[in-house]
Computed example of a mutant assay.
Amino acid sequence: MELQVIQNRIYHIRGLNVMLDFDLAEMYDVQTKRLKEQVRRNIERLPPDLMFELTKNEWLELVAICDQLPNNLKHSTVTPFAFAQEGVAMLSGVLRSPTAIQVNISIMRAFVALRQYALGYSELNQKLETFMIETNMQFNEIYQALTELASQKEEENKPRKRIGYVKDE
């Protein structure tokens, strides 16, 4: 699968990058109901740090924020499962079809690309901060120099008292 398509299905929930069960089911070409059944049968493979069920509030918030969710799911009363990267990897042991294996590989690549993008972003942000600090210091120095020049020019333009003999008029 195309990385961009997968990356668009990665959400940030509870401080984790996760994929939701209905997106995974679509990619694996299985029904969401069947995916959830397999997960429940193998729940010991998926501890809460790898997979969790969204609360009603989290689901409503996600529906309000995301335009890309399917319309038939927006008003669903069933809350989806959210799988962290490692949880998606564990799904390959639960779903053993050739399609699931290939899709899983693509999903892992998308998570890696997303992580690399985030690292590149933080590095760029740090460089930008350094640049702003250096530029700000340079502008302060230029401002001080201009202030000194302006005060010197002011002194030069003041009328001076004449030295020597001044004849009364």
Rank of each mutant, 00 (worst) to 15 (best):
E123T: 03
L119A: 10
A84K: 01
F22N: 05
P70I: 14
I101R: 10
V63S: 05
K127F: 03
L146S: 13
M19T: 04
Y11E: 11
P98N: 04
I65L: 15
E26Q: 06
E58D: 00
A150M: 00
Y28R: 11
T77H: 10
T32N: 15
A150W: 02
E141P: 04
T99Y: 09
I105W: 04
P47T: 13
N125R: 12
Y143T: 12
K74F: 07
L91W: 00
M19I: 09
N136Y: 07
L91P: 06
N136E: 11
Q68P: 00
M19K: 09
S106L: 07
A25N: 08
P70V: 11
A100Y: 11
L146E: 14
F22C: 02
V78K: 10
E26G: 15
F81Q: 03
I65Y: 14
T99A: 01
L20H: 05
L149E: 14
L149N: 15
Y143W: 01
L35A: 06
V39W: 05
L114R: 14
P80I: 12
E86Y: 00
E148R: 15
R96A: 01
P98Y: 09
H75G: 09
E61D: 04
L46N: 07
R109F: 02
E134F: 05
F83C: 00
E148Y: 14
Q31M: 10
L50G: 00
E129W: 07
L69E: 11
S76Q: 04
T32K: 15
L69Q: 08
P48Y: 07
L24G: 05
L50W: 02
G120K: 03
E123C: 00
E26V: 02
V78P: 00
N57W: 05
S76R: 10
N104L: 13
E61K: 14
A64G: 01
N71R: 12
V94A: 06
L73S: 01
E134H: 08
W59M: 15
T55V: 11
G87C: 04
V39Y: 06
K36Q: 10
Q126L: 13
I101D: 03
L124H: 02
T130A: 01
R109P: 04
L149T: 09
I142H: 02
P70E: 08
Q144R: 10
L114E: 04
M108A: 13
L124Q: 04
R40G: 03
L46Y: 01
T99F: 00
I142R: 10
R41T: 06
L69P: 06
D49K: 12
S92P: 03
K33I: 07
